[in-house]
Amino acid sequence: MLLEARDITKAFGSFKAVDAASVTLQQGDVLGLIGPNGAGKSTFFNCLTGDLALTAGKVFLEGHDITNRPPEARARLGLARTFQVPQTFEGMTVLENVMIGAFLRTSHRAEAETKARAVLARVGMERLADAPARSLGTPGRKRLEIARALATEPRILLLDEAMAGLTQREVQLAIDLVRDIHRSGITLVIVEHIMEVIMSLASRVMVFHQGREIAHGTPQEVTSNPAVIAAYLGTRAAAKVAAGHTPIELMGGPAT
């Protein structure tokens, strides 16, 4: 088992944003975290990366307890992430942004640069290497987030809405990139609103609602689960599904 979260609870005051959620991740998994807005998936995600301190529960990486390790220590152990709102290093070039990631595995500048250039080529941004990062638009920034994370040579990559704000065409390109990353042996955790992305990428899905896990399974299993449909669309829609409508259609997915 690569990553395990056991009974994670995160409370803000008396409000439990995540309530006793557990998950296990095997090498090669693509885990999708979905749920309506405010369901707690981003909080859960930030508990895994170490950005938030847990109220209760434990996180294990290959059996080692990393619950109290800060984000930088988790990065060293092979956990990388992207941010929902890109946290670009504005004062740097695109290349330098990626070099920050590459510096995790080497202290030599030249080596970090060589590696960063290779990663930029891999994500198709080599021509932008010397451009100031602040000149990038949303799609470029989202891609740069992924490039930076890849440069740390992660074993697990956590993508926080990496495709929000992209056009249909850009989403397709991003899906191809994520597939390519998965093929190279990196285990993925994806938080995503766009159903199409989850359906085409995730091997397993975990559904959050009001801080609790209400369902898990393959994308097909989950989207036909009445509790999930009720959480997303209300109980009346769940009744409609029972009456023969395809649930994925109601949830904004492809009408196939």
Partner: peptide
Amino acid sequence: FYLRAIRDSERAARSLGAPA
């Protein structure tokens, strides 16, 4: 490099392994 990254976004720098 780490210092400049921390100046722009400490959170991102830490997520990439920079001991801020």
